[in-house]
């Protein structure tokens, strides 16, 4: 009997190259002990020192310190509001990670 191929961690989420339609990106918002959002999204909004900003697919590589605000993740017509006190956002090739409580 053939063995089932083992799932690797990379297979859990779509790779950057899979966002070829240019309409979604992979967003993960999490703190050391809790994951608030992990999935595909059309956009994400937050506030930094400069003011409110939105990240859409195909955004340039970006790193910013977030101010206290509601991080808004828009996915499949739904809006998820995540109130934060501080955080770091890392954007690279349609992969967005928001580190909270740091």
């Amino acid at each position: 009997m053939a063995e089932e191929p083992q799932k690797t961690e990379g297979e859990e989420k779509p790779a950057a190259s899979e966002h070829v339609d240019g309409k979604t990106m992979h967003v993960k918002v999490y703190a050391p002990f809790k994951v608030y959002f992990d999935g595909e999204a059309e956009s994400i909004s937050a506030v930094n020192e400069t003011g409110p900003f939105d990240i859409l697919p195909k955004h340039h590589n970006f790193m910013t310190l977030l101010d206290a605000c509601d991080v808004i993740v828009r996915s499949g017509g739904n809006e998820e509001k995540i109130p934060i006190t501080r955080g770091i956002m890392h954007v690279k090739a349609d992969e967005i990670i928001v580190f909270l409580d740091v």
């Binding site: 790193m63 310190l65 770091i88 740091v102």
Partner: peptide, 30 residues
């Protein structure tokens, strides 16, 4: 390598690095 040549940093590269260092110290201390 992440640098100002291929990334946009806000407020600045050094602010982000300092913040990351403080954050990692906080996590290590916790």
């Amino acid at each position: 390598i992440i640098s100002e040549a291929n990334y946009i940093f806000e407020p600045s590269t050094y602010d982000v690095v300092d913040h990351l260092e403080r954050s990692m110290m906080q996590i290590a201390m916790s």
